[in-house]
Every structure is written in C-alpha cells, then in structure tokens.
C-alpha cells in the first residue's frame, strides 16, 4: 500500500493530566498510521489510555485538567493539534467522528430521533428543512433502521439498545467523515445484537471506504473486525502488527499473556492469569512498564524503556527481548 492511502497519522502524541497528584501520563508517546478503508484495533485494559487517545484525536480532551503536551495528529495533511476550538468544531463530524460506548446515555432523551439526526447535518451546513428530513430518513435507512419515516418521530426511550446504537452510528457518519472512532460500541449490547451491529459496521465500511479505529478490550472483536492491531499498556503502544501476525505470533510478553488469559469456547483447561496490576499512570517506573509483571524480565528491563524493535514485516514491538544484546546476555548468564 502506498503512503497516499494514509488518512490519519499520529506522531509521538502525549496527553497528560495535571492535578495535585502530579502528572498523570494517560497517553505517553504513541504513534500509528491509519489507511483508507482500514480498521485499526486499539486493544488494552482499562486505564491504559485507549479512550484518552480517542478523545485527543477528536480534540475533546477534558478541560481543564488535561492537555495534549506534544505530538502531531495529521488528518488529511492538516495537524489537528494546532487547530483552534472553532476549527475543530468544523472538522469534527465532517472529517473525524466517534461512536461512544453506551447508547443509553449518548442520545438526548428530550429530542426526537429525527431531530438528533438532522442536528448532525445542520451544524455543518445550511439547507431547507424538507431536504434535511429526507436526508435524515436516508441516513437511518443506511443503518438498517426499519420504517425510518415513522422512527424519526420516536424518542430514545422508545427504542432498544441495538436500535439506539444504530441511530448513533447514523449520526456519526451523517457528514461522511473519513475516520470514525468506535470506542467499545458493543459492550452494552447483547451478543446476538452485537453480531448484527458488527456486520452492519463492516457493510457500511465496504460501501463508503471509511477508516475505523476500533477501541476494545475484546480479542474476539479484534479477530472479527480489524485489519491491524495496536496493543496498549500503561499509556504506550507495546506492539503493532496486522491481525493475523498478532494472533499467530505475538512477540511482546504482555500481548502473549493477555491472549492466554482469555477463556475460549473450546477449552476448559486452567486459565493463565497475569499477576499484579498495571502501574499507576502518575507513578510510572523508569524502565519497561510491564517489567514488574513479566516473567522474562531482567534487571536491564527495569532500568531503561525499550524502543520499538522490528519483529517482522509491518510488525513492531517494544521489548528488550527483540534486541540483539538479549540473547548474548543470556549466554553470559548461563556461562
């Protein structure tokens, strides 16, 4: 794939919270690229910085308290970090958009569905009301809402969770953005409804060439939906690869441990459990952030943070085990 396909490029992004406790490094130097029509999965446990990454991309970092300290977010050749609030309002929705986790709380209960879908167009463009209504009906039809004309007059409480999440999907893609960030969009849905929704997202993606960033903690969703994956731990990306490589040959000990701890439908043997917990983001260790829980860790791991090493074609991980000196030192130890 050529570089021309890249729609979003994030370079060394740092988003910190400043409070009495000191500095909480929620996002601490992450970089990735997203190509047209691609689905990138960002996987990690709660508190690893997934959601703050998403909010940084949208320019919605909680104010006051948090701020993008450094880094670049290049969307369509423009650096979003440099944009003013006003400029970001223009970009949000039109070029980059988001689907939130909980459909119960992300729609306004006192406005009809139709109003809320129309609002998504009306913010960015002017036009007559009639045309807007028709476009909203069309948008609802695109996300397979049955009988969209009558549903327009419904209020959120009259719809089921799965339907509401579709409406939110319709709002997010209303102004045909290039990139959509889906932050755990199916955790609040039942399994059979989740499958319907994931299939719908894939269909919309193949129709529109939308690039999706899928934030999740569920490897099943990654396997079902994503082309490439970035695994996050304590504010940093520890491994990136295309989805097959990651599942077949994960190299970072955290990725390996996380995968081994997921219960499978066809296995009943004892689960692998990672001992301990992730470090606090306001009190990060000097060296590798996973070293404390890692079974391979050596003294050096606790002293210096490993850079990104190449583990294969389009496969990178930040772990000292990939460094040339690793195997040599092992020999010394055994000798």
């Amino acid at each position: 794939m050529s570089n021309n396909d890249v729609v979003l490029q994030v370079n060394d992004l740092h988003t910190y919270f400043f409070n009495r406790r000191g500095i909480t490094k929620a996002v601490d130097g992450i970089s990735f690229t997203l190509r047209e029509g691609e689905t990138l999965g960002i996987v990690g446990e709660s508190g690893c910085g997934k959601t703050m990454t998403a909010l940084s991309l949208l320019g919605l970092v909680p104010q006051p308290g948090a701020r993008i300290v450094s880094g670049e977010i290049i969307l369509d050749g423009e650096d979003l970090v440099q944009k003013s609030k006003q400029e970001m309002r223009e970009i949000r929705g039109r070029k980059i958009s988001m689907i939130l986790q909980d459909p119960q709380t992300s729609l306004n209960p006192v406005f009809s569905i139709g109003n809320q879908v129309i609002e998504a167009f009306a913010i960015n463009e002017k036009g007559n009301r009639k045309a807007m209504i028709n476009r909203a009906v069309e948008a609802l039809r695109n996300v397979r809402v049955a009988a969209p004309e009558t549903r327009m007059k419904d209020y959120p409480h009259q719809m089921s969770g799965g339907m509401k999440q579709r409406v939110i999907g319709a709002i997010s893609i209303a102004s045909s953005p290039k990139v959509i960030i889906a932050d755990e969009p199916t955790t609040a849905l039942d399994v059979t409804i989740q499958l319907q929704y994931l299939r719908l997202l894939k269909e919309i993606q193949s129709e529109t060439g939308l690039a999706i960033i899928f934030i999740t903690h569920d490897f099943g969703i990654v396997a079902r939906m994503c082309d490439r994956v970035a695994v996050m731990y304590a504010g940093r990306i520890v491994e990136t690869a295309d989805v097959r490589t990651l599942f077949n040959k994960p190299v970072h000990p955290y990725t390996q441990a996380l995968m081994a701890s997921v219960p499978q439908m066809d296995r009943t043997d004892r689960l692998f459990a990672i001992d301990g917990q992730p470090p606090a983001l306001w009190d990060l260790p000097e060296g590798c952030r996973f070293a404390e829980r890692c079974s391979h860790a050596r003294p050096h791991c606790h002293q210096e943070y490993p850079g990104m090493f190449q583990a294969g074609d389009d496969h990178h991980a930040s772990c000292w085990m990939l460094d040339e000196s690793w195997s040599n030192t092992e020999q010394e130890v055994t000798a």
């Binding site: 499958l195 097959r244 997921v262 439908m265």
Partner: peptide, 25 residues
C-alpha cells in the same frame, strides 16, 4: 445455536457460520 455462532471468533482465520437472528427479543 444462534447464541453460539454470535460468540466472537478466537482467531481471525476462524471461519464459522454466523446464524444472524433477525429482530430483537
């Protein structure tokens, strides 16, 4: 069967027949 087929795959190469239920409960 539908519930089982809606469970997400363990690996990207897992091909399973997806029984998609129409409608909701």
């Amino acid at each position: 069967k539908a519930l089982f087929s809606a469970a997400l795959p363990a690996h990207p190469d897992d091909q399973r027949e997806e029984v998609v239920l129409t409608g909701e409960v």
